[in-house]
Simulated assay, not measured.
Amino acid sequence: MTTRVCFELRVRPERIEEYRERHSPVRAEMLEEIAAAGRRNYSLFLADGGRLIGYYETDDDDAAQAYLAASPIAARWEEEMAPFFLDLGGRPDQAATGLVEVFNLEQQLERAR
């Protein structure tokens, strides 16, 4: 079963442009590591002021988290990216605030039919 995961982080306002540049493009080895972890349909959305919302889908989020937590490639990337964030208590991938899904169109349509 697919799990949809959404999270929030805060990018330091003075580093927003640099943050954007670091993601255009992300290093190929990191992209491959995210995919190998089992994450797909992964997107980041950045609002004015540095509010960052991330979204991805996975079949096993615990396994994806564990894979990336043990990955030296992900550790290097997250070490480089950590200074971009406000109020971070650990590696960005593990310290992000999870958001609770309260509505999904496809699920509700399926139930309604």
Rank of each mutant, 00 (worst) to 15 (best):
T3P: 00
T3G: 01
T3V: 08
T3Y: 02
R4K: 15
V5G: 06
V5A: 15
C6A: 13
C6N: 15
E8G: 04
E8V: 10
R10F: 01
R10L: 12
R10S: 04
V11S: 02
R12G: 00
P13K: 04
P13G: 11
P13M: 05
E14M: 05
R15Y: 04
I16P: 00
E17W: 14
E17N: 13
E17G: 11
E18N: 11
Y19C: 13
Y19Q: 13
R20V: 15
R20D: 02
E21Y: 01
E21P: 00
R22W: 04
R22G: 01
R22Y: 01
R22N: 04
S24E: 13
S24D: 11
S24M: 13
S24I: 06
P25K: 12
R27G: 06
A28I: 09
A28Y: 07
M30A: 04
L31T: 09
L31Y: 05
L31M: 10
L31P: 06
E32I: 03
E32Q: 08
E33F: 09
E33V: 08
I34Y: 01
I34H: 07
I34A: 03
A35V: 02
A35Q: 07
A35W: 03
A36W: 06
A36I: 10
A37G: 10
R39E: 12
N41M: 00
Y42Q: 13
Y42D: 12
Y42N: 14
S43Y: 12
L44V: 11
L44G: 00
L46G: 11
L46K: 09
L46E: 07
A47Y: 12
A47K: 15
A47S: 14
A47C: 08
G49V: 06
G49L: 02
G49Y: 01
G49S: 02
G50S: 08
G50F: 00
G50A: 11
G50P: 04
G50I: 00
R51F: 02
I53T: 08
I53R: 14
I53W: 15
I53C: 15
G54M: 10
G54E: 06
Y55P: 01
Y55E: 07
Y55R: 03
E57T: 11
T58M: 02
D59C: 06
D59Y: 03
D60V: 05
D60R: 07
D60A: 07
D61E: 15
D62S: 07
D62K: 09
A63L: 14
A63R: 08
A64P: 01
A64H: 00
A64Q: 02
Q65T: 03
Q65F: 02
A66T: 14
A66H: 13
A66C: 10
Y67Q: 03
Y67V: 05
L68I: 03
L68N: 07
L68Y: 04
L68R: 08
A70T: 05
A70H: 07
S71E: 01
S71F: 03
P72Y: 01
I73K: 09
I73V: 09
I73A: 08
A74V: 09
A74N: 11
A75G: 13
A75D: 13
A75S: 14
A75R: 09
R76T: 11
E78P: 11
E78N: 15
E79I: 08
E80A: 03
M81L: 09
A82M: 09
P83L: 13
P83G: 10
P83K: 14
P83S: 10
F84E: 00
F85K: 05
F85C: 07
L86M: 14
L86T: 06
L86D: 03
D87E: 15
L88P: 05
L88Q: 06
G89T: 12
G89D: 12
G90F: 13
R91D: 10
